[in-house]
């Protein structure tokens, strides 16, 4: 029995190495000087006959690549700001649109609720390939292509947060709501004073998952933003990688930071959210 659990520990450690290894490389790479990084991974981007290598710990750790990227690449800030501008308003919009919708599905029974909810599930399942033409047509009609709104609006009306939050709202004990009703609280009051506080972890879960999704978005900006000046970080990163290796490493790390910070802060909520995305009712 002992040997068995030892074996499973060893196996897990090896597999975890596949995850931490690349991340470690990214972080250490960002502290390497230009010469070291070129020596390490230059062969990948040049046509040399040498092979790439890696120092587990940089020989001459330096902050120079960070300084260079932050001082000499105004582009980087523009793209970072583009990402923020395109992601956060969408999430705030979800708060006003998806939260009440989820509340409605979770707490009320009304005619047509079931087919409507199935419609939301189907919309959630559909990949971008299916909806991109229709999104394009409607964004074109409203002359929103090539603006931040082309990314924000479809995100606001995403079905995914409705689906996640519905689970959490459903878990609120009915007796609590009945009690509030007996005390004479109106529907809006119940929503604001019981629904939102009691379902807060569901709302946070949906927001965190939504953030990760939007921050990593590639397909939408690629399709709806022709103007490169509007491109978010996720599209811009691969552009720099081939020219300045050091800067590319740093840019990769910085682009990852918001997502990792939110992950570390919200891991509990991410797990709850994923568990709630179990389609089982």
């Amino acid at each position: 029995m002992k040997a068995k659990s030892f074996l499973s520990l060893g196996l897990l450690l090896i597999i975890v190495l596949l995850i931490w290894g690349p991340l470690w490389m990214m972080v250490t790479g960002s502290f390497m000087g230009a010469q070291e990084i070129n020596e390490m991974i230059g062969p990948v981007f040049g046509n040399e006959d040498k092979m790439a290598g890696w120092h587990l710990i940089p020989r001459f750790p330096t902050l120079k690549p960070y300084v260079e990227l932050l001082l000499d690449s105004p582009n980087f800030f523009v793209m970072f700001w583009n990402s923020c501008r395109q992601v956060f308003p969408g999430l705030i919009g979800q708060l006003f649109i998806a939260v009440p919708a989820a509340w409605s599905f979770a707490r009320y029974s009304f005619k047509g609720k079931k087919p409507l909810f199935i419609l939301y599930i189907v919309l959630m399942i559909m990949p971008f390939q299916v909806t991109m033409v229709s999104s394009y047509l409607v964004l074109d009609k409203f002359r929103l292509l090539n603006t931040d709104f082309a990314l924000i609006l479809p995100n606001i009306f995403s079905a995914f947060p409705v689906f996640i939050m519905e689970k959490f709202f459903k878990a609120i004990p009915g007796s609590l709501i009945e009690a509030a009703k007996i005390d004479g609280a109106g529907e809006l009051k119940i929503f604001m004073h019981i629904g939102i506080p009691m379902g807060a972890s569901g709302i946070v879960s949906a927001m965190v998952l939504g953030f990760l999704e939007a921050w990593n978005g590639i397909e939408q900006p690629l399709t709806f933003l022709k103007d490169r000046a509007l491109w978010p970080l996720s599209l811009y990163l691969p552009e720099i990688s081939k020219e300045k290796l050091g800067a590319a490493m740093v840019a990769s790390v910085i682009a990852m930071m918001p997502a990792i910070l939110i992950f570390l802060y919200g891991q509990k909520y991410i797990e709850q959210g994923i568990a709630a995305s179990g389609i089982k009712e």
């Binding site: 897990l12 975890v16 995850i19 931490w20 690349p22 991340l23 490389m25 990214m26 991974i41 990948v44 981007f45 790439a52 890696w54 990760l212 921050w215 990593n216 590639i218 970080l233 996720s234 599209l235 811009y236 990163l237 691969p238 990688s241 590319a248 490493m249 990769s252 790390v253 682009a255 990852m256 997502a259 990792i260 939110i262 992950f263 891991q267 991410i270 797990e271």
Partner: peptide
């Protein structure tokens, strides 16, 4: 272990691409 396996979810594809190249 659970956290370790979850982290890649947060890593933007754009960040990882350079590494995949390497």
């Amino acid at each position: 272990f659970k956290s370790s396996f979850l982290i890649p979810m947060a890593v933007p594809v754009a960040s990882i691409v350079l590494l995949w190249d390497i």
